[in-house]
């Protein structure tokens, strides 16, 4: 049962396409498992459709339609290959780095970033804490398996954590299972081992 959801502003930015890609990936992982948020997203996307209808049209160049009609029989581009069959969409088709140790009992596997947010997979053992660096902007974490707890409650698979205030202590893995989650954050560049891992694949 999913108990923790993204804020309305985060969902609206996702629907509008203005969320940086790493954050958008984390939101997509939650949406795939959360019918409540998918309903809100459908409303927001319908709002996007209504907004499109409302806009004052800006004409295209005179021959745009005929040039396009010349191209319509081109085959549609193939979807990108599945690179990580063990991970849920959209992570399964994304380029990921290798696993890097980031301290005792925790590993980090970066995804490519570059539009203002970094992110990747974190695997942490029971009683270990997760890295968190979100004091410069929006930070999202979605759990794939296992559980963690922080000052705002307990989180399980599918739950999305979007801290509203700077947290004084990082989330701690609870239970007997390791916790696999995907984390993405805006703002500051990473230092230390996490930064080293992220730099191998790019900000």
């Amino acid at each position: 049962m999913i108990r923790h959801h993204p804020s309305e502003t985060t969902l609206a930015a996702y629907a509008a396409g203005s969320l940086p890609s790493a954050l958008s990936t984390v939101a997509a992982l939650h949406l795939a498992r959360c019918p409540v948020c998918r309903r809100s997203l459908a409303t927001l996307e319908a709002t996007g459709g209504a907004v499109l209808d409302e806009l004052t049209p800006v004409p295209l160049s005179g021959d745009a339609l005929s040039r396009l009609l010349d191209r319509v029989d081109e085959p549609a581009p193939a979807p990108p290959p599945i690179l990580n069959p063990d991970l849920p969409a959209p992570l399964n088709r994304m380029v990921l780095g290798r696993w890097w140790p980031i301290g005792l009992g925790a590993r980090y596997r970066p995804m490519r970033a570059g539009d203002g947010a970094w992110g990747g997979l974190v695997l942490a053992q029971p009683n270990r804490s997760l890295p968190r660096h979100g004091h410069a902007g929006l930070e999202l974490t979605c759990i794939l398996s296992g559980r963690f707890a922080d000052g705002s409650g307990e989180y399980g698979p599918g739950d999305l954590s979007e801290p509203v205030v700077d947290h004084d202590r990082p989330p701690l893995v609870i239970g007997t299972e390791p916790c696999l989650c995907v984390i993405a954050s805006e703002g500051m560049k990473l230092r230390g081992l996490l930064g080293l891992a992220q730099r191998t694949i790019g900000y």
């Binding site: 990936t25 997509a28 380029v95 490519r112 790019g202």
Partner: peptide, 13 residues
């Protein structure tokens, strides 16, 4: 995204 990483993609529900 293509400006930086051509192989990444947007989830398409």
């Amino acid at each position: 995204r293509r400006e930086r990483h051509p192989s990444d993609l947007m989830p398409d529900p």
